[in-house]
Amino acid sequence: MAFFEAKNITKFFGGLAAVNGVNFRVEQGQTYGLIGPNGSGKTTIFNLINGYFPLTTGEIYFGGRKISGLKTYRICQEGIGRTFQVVKPLKRMTVLDNVVASAFLRTRSKREAVRLAEETIAFCGLTAHKDKLAKSLPIASRKRLEITRALATKPKLLLLDETAAGLNPSEVDEAIRLIRKINESGITIIIVEHIMKVIMTISDRILAINHGMVIAEGTPAEVASNHEVVAAYLGEDYDAQS
């Protein structure tokens, strides 16, 4: 039994197949990359896992249990945390309160929730911003807050949606360090990312999709040398030249 498995997942928006018959499995402890050109269906896959959209067909299993069909909050309670590509901070709350709100998932005591939140904030390096309002943070810290908040729900599997997009090179390096640290603490990660430097350095395996269908799956090196992947990213002509 796989730790996480998506079986033939399909999502139609009207007549458009945003995700079409995608299969993949993630083993516990892996960092699993999800790549593809714009509009290829990466975020939709996250929304399907997370239950934000219902599946048209297919099934998703997590820890041996079927999770497709459950409500979003139930899936989070099962142990899948996610971040949003377009960050959704709780703007008029402080960073600490943002994280406390999610830490309440695993405890009913406020003292315990605040302790867990402060611990998670320290783990993610946001302690200096703890008492600031979430809306006052710059984008790099907001992305970090997304991760912190998801981590405070104590997930077993974390879905990261373009955590490094819009960051400058040094911030990207910090993001990579943080993702590594999270993975080393025993949390399995599925990551969507456009920045190849990030995805190639941290992924154990990569799934490449285009037009909602799988075009390649394998180790970073395998995927990077796959003709279809190169064609999808750089165009058919480029692939023919090389």
Partner: peptide, 9 residues
């Protein structure tokens, strides 16, 4: 939406 994905019913 963020609240829902943080496990809040």
């Amino acid at each position: 939406d963020a609240a829902e994905s943080l496990g809040i019913d």
